[in-house]
Design a protein around this nucleic acid. Structure first.
Length: 260
DNA sequence: CTCGACTCCTGTTAGC
DNA sequence: TGCTAACAGGAGTCGA
């Protein structure tokens, strides 16, 4: 599913829209517009505008318009970005590989004939006019050790739930989270504030490493744990049957032998 | 403010 | 063969 890494790929694809003028807006699914936005309002805000930047904060992709208004794009679990006919990423976990035109939820048409489209079978994504970016924590690609420690490694909540909390740091999804905890050897159910100095540093460094690997390998499904994240899966490190339980509201796989 | 439980969405798949 | 129920997870809401 799209996590911070995938949205970064989407952002890079959206950079090709920078400098282009929006001629029209396609809103086949008004439900996909969030936080009170209407087809009329989004159309009025976009038509005639030049996209001046494509930014990302966590899993939110932001298109800045030259009017100063901003278009926020969310992709939920199954949303894909298509720019000028080319999908921003080829593979997305947990969704169909097909691409059906009826799943197009939103589109921008440029005056040069090109276009930018969100295709989202399960409709968990959305488009927001002038989204609130301040509710999101520091982006996971930029987060510094001190912020990580003060925002994530605190309290009695499971460290997994902390990592997934977008208000604390933004961009970690379920697969990045499980892979990081697995590589760092930390039990996802441990309370976030219980990690030692060394464990906290290890977790931070491992997160950076996982992000770099996923970026270079093509997405959050490329982890070493990933193929074992199934019922009956075994730890790729030591062969121990993996535990499977919901933590932080998400299905979690981990190894009780080396994650402590 | 914090935090867990619940809800939304629908294509796919396991099982009867 | 055809049906149903379970499953996937990002994110918002609600009540304690």
């Amino acid at each position: 599913m799209p996590e911070g890494v995938e949205i970064e790929f989407y952002r890079r694809a959206a950079e090709s829209a920078v400098g282009r003028t929006i001629e029209s807006v396609d809103t086949p699914d008004a439900w996909f517009l969030k936080e009170g936005a209407t087809p009329e309002a989004v159309t009025a805000a976009c038509v005639g505008q030049v996209i001046v930047a494509a930014r990302r904060r966590g899993k939110l992709l932001i298109l800045d318009l030259d009017s100063g208004e901003r278009l926020g794009l969310r992709f939920g679990m199954t949303g894909r970005l298509v720019v000028d006919g080319t999908a921003a990423i080829a593979y997305l976990e947990y969704t169909t590989k097909r691409s059906d035109p009826k799943w197009i939820r939103f589109g921008l048409v440029f005056n040069d004939g090109g276009y930018l489209v969100i295709n989202d079978p399960r409709r968990l994504g959305g488009v927001i006019l002038d989204p609130n970016e301040d509710g999101l924590g520091q982006d996971v690609f930029d987060v510094d050790p001190a912020t990580f420690r003060s925002r994530v490694l605190v309290g009695d909540v499971a460290v997994k739930a902390r990592l997934l909390d977008q208000r604390r740091i933004a961009g970690v999804g379920n697969l990045i989270c499980d892979e990081t905890l697995w590589r760092a050897g930390i039990d996802p159910a441990r309370s976030a504030g219980s990690l030692s100095e060394d464990e906290g540093s290890k977790l931070f460094e491992t997160l950076r490493e996982v992000l770099a690997d996923f970026l270079s390998d093509g997405g959050s499904h490329t982890g070493r744990l990933h193929s074992a994240r199934v019922r009956g899966g075994r730890c790729p490190l030591d062969g121990e049957p993996l535990m499977r339980r919901e933590i932080g509201g998400r299905t979690t796989y981990w190894c009780v032998r080396h994650q402590r």
